[in-house]
Structures are given as C-alpha cells and as structure tokens.
Design a binder for these strands. Structure first.
Length: 444
RNA sequence: GUGGCUGUAGCUCAACUGGUUAGAGCACCGGUCUGUGGCACCGGGGGUUGCGGGUUCAAGUCCCGUCAGUCACCCCA
C-alpha cells in the first residue's frame, strides 16, 4: 500500500521471520560442525568475469550485475563455487586434504521471483576437495540428510534421489549414442518427468538418435535399482564399473543410517555442465516443493576455475524451499522471536536508578532483562510483562524493610529454574535469585 | 523475458445487480480495574479501496494502462 517496500524478490525479516531463518542456520552450522567442516566466507560482490568465464551464457542473463562507480563490471554472487574454487586454489598446497569447508552465503540472481525462488536467498554450501573415493560422496550426502534430521524431518519427509554422470554416460554409450548426442540426452532425461513422452522422443530423434535407442533410453531411466540395470547392461564394462561404485556408495549410506532416505534415480542430471560423477537432489517425499538441496562431484572444476587439479564435490541447500517445507510440516510452529527472560516491575516509589542497578545485576547473571523505560503504573507494568511473554517477573518494592529482597514469580510455561519456586508470588533474597540465573546460564 | 490469476486497515475478511461520511474481528495505543492480570469493560489511532487514466449524475465495484504479489513457462547456481 503505502511507503517503501523491499525490491521484488527480496525479503524483510521481521523478528519472527529472522528466528526461523536463524533456526535453519543453527541446524546447518551444528551439523557441519559435527562432521568437522569449518566455515569460510568470501565477498558478496565479485568481478563479473568470475561468472562469465566458466559459466554458461545462459547464466549471465540471470546475474545481478552492474557497473560500479569505478567503471568495474561487477556482479552479486549467484553461487559460491567460483569463490570457493579461487580460495582453495590460491592456497591449494598449504591446505590439509581433504578440505572440508562450508559457508552460508547470501546469493543473488536477477530473474522473476516464483515459488521457492527469489532474487536473494541464503544457501548452505558444503564442499570436500581432494578425495576421489565414493566415500567422500557418501559423507557429503550424509551431511545433507543429517541436517534434515536435525530439523526434525525424517525418511518419510525427505527423499534423496541419486545418480551418477559416469553411469549415465556409460549407459548412453551402451545404447549406441554418440558423444555429441549426450548433451541432448542429458537435457531430455532431466526433463523427462515434466515433459510428454512424445516431445522427449522428438528431441532425441531430431538429434539423430534412432527411435529404437530413444525408446530404450526412456525405458532405462525409469530404473530404480542397481540390480535392474545390472541385468540389462551386465555385458558393458563401463556400466558395471559405475554400478559397482554406486553399490558401494549405497552401502555406505546404510552405515550412516540413511539408506532408507536414498533412491536411485537416473533422471537426476543437475543442470550444470560441470558435474562429473555422483549427483544428488533432495526432495520432499510428497513431491509438492522444488528441490531442497542438490549437489555432486565436479572433479574438473577447480582445474578450470582455479588452475589446480584437485577432485572436488559439494552441495547447496537454500533457505527458501527448506523453510517452506519445514513450515508445511509444522516444524517451525514454535520458532518465534526471543522474549525477555525477566521483566522487572517496580513500585512507583522505586527510583529508575534502582531498577537499572537490579537489572544490571540480573544481566550480569546472564538473564535477558527488560523493564518499563517510561513512567508506568504497576498495573501497566504487569500487563506489559505479560504481553511481552516474559518467562519470569521480579518485583521491586520501595519498602526500606525489603532491602536485599525481591519479589519473584514464574510466568511462562517453560521449564522452571532450579532454586526458584515454580508457581505463586514469593519474596526471595535478591542474591538467591541472581544465583539461580547464574546457574541457569553457566555462570556460577 | 512470456502468459494466467489476484490487489479493500499491520493481519484475516465484509460492503445487494455501480448509489450517502468504506465496516468487523484480531493486533497496536490509551484509560478503568490498588493489583496473581496473557482477564473484563471503555475509548483511540490507522484506509484519497496498490497507482494512473477512462466510462458514468455516481466507481471499492465496469474498462484500459501501470506497479506489486502469486502460479506456470524459460532456466535453475
């Protein structure tokens, strides 16, 4: 209506919104930390060339790019990988391998906003550099799934669909497609779920694929087990090799405790051309949202972007779709902005200075303390302490006989503090109250 | 970039086929309650109906444009 609004595709985070975002970020950091990844960051604004060099032409039209006051062509970062590659490449020899880094960048793209896609979002990036084994791929997927578990999503909520570029490539060769036809095949397979069978067939045959091979391909990508593919392509060495690797990978997922979440799905291609091995995408099991996360192995990208030949793999997980999914499953219901722990109510005869002194003593004990800044009657103060949803209320009497004492009442339905009464209004030693908060905040 | 749908207070919505100063609940602010009170009662602020133009005696209601939101396409880091 009136006044300034955020730019299209950008979000204001009111306290409750920020609490939800922080809830997600907390899970990201907690799990990354448990897997002993370390956090890094880079500039949100980068030279335009960083993205135009190695990314496709298409991506350039969606860059949030402009010319700065120094006539430099710059772009807000649309992805973290180029920055990551640069940073790793610059110190490649000095870094202990494998590199296990993660970041929580805010990323930008200039395109029309739609469900699950804005012009700005926060995206967890987790990468491993220096390991060719599928054990690294399994470790990576385990991080992604453990984050979902951390956010109280289970195998019934999340499906990890995995594939392998090497497997798909070997299958295409086995079906008689030329290398030149692989690109078209990838594009068709990527869209096979949404496109009609006729249009898929048409695109393949237009590229010179025989109708017979095209039909075989469309039938093959429907396979959901290693066994089915082994039965069909058991005679092709490259396919078998890829299947063996995938089988070991799935076996490792079992060891992590996440085998139930994972399904083989050859239609997972990932748009980016730089993927070279196992790729995966996380979806909600009910299929009503966009991908929650996606990633895979990109063994040649560091060479191309940073000039060092190191194998690498990683995934990204954005806050938008994940937040939508969590909200839909009721997992964010209790996530609200923080409320005061203690509200200090003072009788009218108590001086502001005395309120401040007690407030500071409580804060020194670790408590989050608020009180009426302006003049307010006792009634008013009580009312405000309730609307502010403070957990505890303390009363200051101006009575000289009450020196060193304080009124106390627990209000909110949260866990009571050890050493303080659970209900009713009481007069306690101020020191006893401070002691209870010190203990609650680990400051005793 | 293309197309569909939508656009009334902070939020959820109302206003017969176009017809007087656009209403309600919640939220917010203030007051009463000398007080266990997230209560009750009273009162208040807040909308040139997204914006601009047109049709009409008269437009929140109809038409056009525009902006925004939303969904889909394109694309997906």
């Amino acid at each position: 209506m009136k006044g300034a609004l955020p730019l299209p595709g950008f979000r204001d985070f009111y306290p409750d919104d920020l609490a939800r975002r922080a809830h997600i970020a907390r899970a990201w950091r907690a799990v990354a930390r448990r897997f002993a990844f370390v956090e890094y960051d880079g500039p949100p604004l980068e030279p335009l060339e960083l993205y135009t060099q190695k990314s496709g032409e298409e991506i350039v039209t969606q860059l949030y790019a402009f010319t700065d006051k120094g006539a430099r062509e710059v772009s807000l970062r649309p992805e973290m990988t180029p920055t990551f590659a640069r940073m790793v490449a610059a110190k490649a020899n000095a870094l202990r391998k494998p590199v296990r880094w993660f970041s929580l960048p805010q990323l930008f793209r200039y395109e029309r906003a739609q469900k699950g896609r804005l012009r700005e979002h926060f995206q967890l990036n987790v990468d491993i550099v220096g390991e060719t084994s599928e054990r690294a791929d399994a470790e990576l997927l385990a991080v992604a799934l453990e984050i979902c578990a951390e956010l109280e999503l289970g195998a019934a909520d999340i499906r990890a669909r995995v594939s392998d570029r090497r497997l798909l490539s070997a299958i295409l060769n086995a079906l008689g497609l030329t290398d030149a036809q692989h690109g078209v095949a990838y594009a068709v397979i990527d869209k096979v779920e949404r496109a009609s069978r006729e249009s898929s067939m048409a695109k393949l045959t237009e590229a010179g694929v025989t109708a017979e091979a095209a039909e075989a391909l469309l039938a093959t990508v429907g396979a959901t087990t290693v066994e089915a593919l082994r039965a069909r392509f058991g005679a092709h060495v490259a396919v078998v090799e890829a299947l063996d690797r995938l089988e070991r990978y799935l076996g490792l997922m079992d060891a992590y405790g996440y085998r139930d979440w994972v399904v083989l799905d050859l239609t997972i291609v990932r748009g980016l051309a730089y993927y070279t091995g196992i790729v995966f995408e996380l979806f909600d099991a009910q299929g009503e949202f966009r991908a929650v996360a996606g990633g895979g192995r990109y063994d040649n990208l560091l060479q191309a972007l940073g000039g060092v030949d190191l194998p690498a793999l990683g995934f990204g997980m954005g806050d938008v779709v994940l937040g939508e999914l969590l909200a839909a499953r009721g997992k964010l219901d209790g996530v609200k902005a923080a409320t005061p722990e203690v509200w200090l109510i003072a009788e009218e005869r108590v001086s502001p200075a005395e309120v401040i002194r007690v407030g500071q003593a409580l804060r020194a004990a670790g408590a989050a303390v608020e009180y009426a800044i302006g003049d307010a009657t006792m009634n008013k103060q009580r009312k405000v302490s309730h609307t502010a949803e403070s957990e505890h209320v303390c009363f200051l009497s101006g009575d000289p006989a009450m020196e060193g004492m304080i009124g106390y009442k627990r209000v909110a339905a949260r866990a009571p503090l050890r050493g303080l009464p659970e209900q009713g209004e009481h007069v306690l030693e101020l020191e006893a109250v401070l002691q209870a908060f010190r203990r609650a905040h680990g400051r005793d």
